[in-house]
Nucleic acid binder design. Structure first.
Length: 298
DNA sequence: AATCGCAGGTTTTCAAGCCC
DNA sequence: GGGCTTGAAAACCTGCGATT
């Protein structure tokens, strides 16, 4: 058996067990029903299956245990380490694209501009090796282009966009640069001293990428209509989201977050389906912005 | 270019251990 | 005792270089 096949089998087992707990026989049956799995011949003996279970735990950090009374294998503690989750998503996507290519056009992608992800590898290398990078940056709000030389610290994803967090050598201020507005990236040979900056901590209470403002994170309570609320529950606005109330009239979530511009825009995008309950300051601000938008039509 | 044989690795088979 | 685990040996694959 090739390594490739083993890896595919691992992913197949994970995605099957993610559906529901299954016994070894059930897993084999499910694979028999799956044309892709049949084509790749992902079947295995029980012993191999058991070894797979163990390998999956060490490689993917997903613990799978067998319930002896039901004979079913179940994913116990889905640590769901973000990295491996992302890997798996991309793996699934890649597989789907490959299938779609050979079978038709059932995959419909959102049409969008390139995200600048081709810079990811280069910037990651630079930040790991403390190498300064230079690039042309196209500003968001006007057409001007500036040349930057920065010390890359981290790469962050926010709202489906990738950003470079870096220290601008010009004024020594830590800034965010959207990768899709970076051009002519050049990794220099100049080394810089590692910078003390806990990127994760800094952005923990932020909604998107806006940071460095002096706003402190506050407790925010939002009340959604049941329809919209269920959607938000399945796709949380922020990792601090907690369900605190759920009845026929409304669904309430609490957050601990900086109420920055981008978070307010997100709230406004839900229109009349959402109401700010707390804090008062945010409530009045949203109200003001809504009135402002109404006045545009007078 | 095709074939052979080896080395390293994986899977299967089988037996024994262990837990419910 | 049944069935999952574990360990070890045998069988089998695969890649690679040497040979024809």
């Amino acid at each position: 058996m090739s390594v490739r096949q083993t890896i595919k089998r691992h992913y197949k087992i994970i995605s099957l067990l993610r559906l529901r707990p299954m016994s070894y026989e059930e897993v084999q049956d499910m694979m028999a029903d799956n044309p892709d799995a049949v084509e790749e011949d992902l079947f295995s003996s029980q012993r191999t299956f058991q070894r797979d279970i163990k390998d999956i735990e060490t490689i993917h950090k997903i613990e799978i245990k067998c319930n002896r009374s039901t004979k079913k294998y179940a994913i116990v503690e889905d640590v769901e380490e973000t990295h491996s989750q992302r890997l798996r998503e991309n793996f699934d996507l890649l597989n789907a694209i490959r299938l779609s290519k050979s079978f038709g056009n059932q995959l419909i992608f959102e049409e969008r501009k390139p995200l600048g992800t081709h810079h990811l590898a280069g910037l990651l290398h630079a930040s790991q090796n403390f190498l300064e990078v230079a690039f042309e940056y196209h500003k968001f709000w006007d057409t001007s282009v500036s040349t930057r030389k920065v010390k890359p610290i981290a790469l962050k994803e926010a709202r489906n966009r990738w950003y470079l967090i870096a220290d601008d050598t010009k004024d020594d201020i830590i800034k965010n640069f959207s990768l899709d507005r970076i051009q002519k990236l050049e990794i220099t040979k100049e080394k810089f001293k590692p910078i003390e900056y806990q990127a994760y901590e800094e952005f923990k209470d932020s909604f998107g990428i806006i940071n460095g403002t002096n706003e402190d994170p506050v407790k925010v309570i939002l009340s959604f209509t049941p329809r919209e609320g269920r959607y938000v529950e399945s796709l949380p606005l922020h990792h601090s989201q907690e369900l605190i109330l759920n009845n026929e009239k409304e669904i309430r979530f609490s957050y601990f977050i900086r109420p920055t511009y981008d978070f307010r825009m997100e709230i406004l995008s839900y229109g009349d389906q959402v109401k700010v309950v707390e804090p008062k300051a945010l409530q009045t601000q949203i109200k003001k912005e809504l009135q402002c938008s109404i006045s545009n039509y007078k």
